[in-house]
Amino acid sequence: MSGNGNAAATAEENSPKMRVIRVGTRKSQLARIQTDSVVATLKASYPGLQFEIIAMSTTGDKILDTALSKIGEKSLFTKELEHALEKNEVDLVVHSLKDLPTVLPPGFTIGAICKRENPHDAVVFHPKFVGKTLETLPEKSVVGTSSLRRAAQLQRKFPHLEFRSIRGNLNTRLRKLDEQQEFSAIILATAGLQRMGWHNRVGQILHPEECMYAVGQGALGVEVRAKDQDILDLVGVLHDPETLLRCIAERAFLRHLEGGCSVPVAVHTAMKDGQLYLTGGVWSLDGSDSIQETMQATIHVPAQHEDGPEDDPQLVGITARNIPRGPQLAAQNLGISLANLLLSKGAKNILDVARQLNDAH
Rank of each mutant, 00 (worst) to 15 (best):
I248K: 00
E86L: 10
V94D: 03
L234G: 04
P101T: 11
K227E: 15
E179M: 10
V263L: 12
A151H: 12
Q275D: 02
I323L: 12
Q204Y: 08
C211Y: 10
D352T: 07
A303T: 12
H268V: 14
L148M: 14
I205Q: 15
D240M: 04
V143E: 04
V38P: 00
L104G: 08
D352Y: 14
L97D: 01
G281V: 11
R164A: 11
E82D: 09
K157E: 07
I71L: 12
T59G: 07
V222F: 01
W283Q: 11
L81V: 08
T269C: 15
T319N: 06
Q50S: 03
L49H: 10
G346Q: 00
M196Q: 15
D91A: 08
T279R: 06
K43Q: 10
G287R: 07
L68R: 11
R201F: 05
K132F: 14
T172F: 10
D230V: 12
E135A: 13
Y46I: 08
S146Y: 06
S284D: 05
W283C: 07
C114D: 10
E210I: 15
N169Y: 10
I231G: 07
D273I: 04
A297F: 00
T41D: 09
H199G: 09
C247T: 06
T145C: 05
T243Q: 15
L137F: 07
G144M: 12
S45Y: 13
K128H: 12
V93T: 06
G72K: 04
F77Q: 04
A339I: 02
S37F: 11
G274V: 12
E242V: 14
L234A: 14
V130F: 09
P101I: 11
K140V: 10
K70C: 08
L276F: 04
Q153R: 03
R225C: 11
D121I: 02
G308V: 13
V224H: 00
S262N: 15
I336F: 10
G218S: 01
S141V: 09
A252P: 01
G48F: 07
E250I: 01
K79M: 09
Q217W: 02
R255P: 03
D352M: 09
V267S: 05
L97W: 00
P47C: 07
R156I: 14
Q304N: 15
L104N: 03
A249D: 03
G144I: 03
Q204A: 01
V94P: 05
T190S: 03
G60M: 00
S141W: 05
L100F: 02
K157P: 08
L244Y: 14
F51Q: 06
P127C: 03
G260A: 05
E73I: 07
A214I: 04
R175L: 09
A249V: 07
Q217F: 03
A112P: 05
I110P: 01
K157Y: 12
L188N: 06
L351K: 04
L188E: 02
D228T: 03
V39F: 07
G48L: 13
P47R: 12
L244I: 02
V222T: 02
S262G: 15
M295E: 07
E223T: 08
N169P: 02
C211E: 01
S290G: 12
K128Y: 09
V39W: 06
D99S: 02
A303H: 02
P138D: 10
A331T: 09
Q194G: 06
K348M: 05
R167W: 07
H199P: 15
A330Y: 00
M56Y: 02
I318T: 07
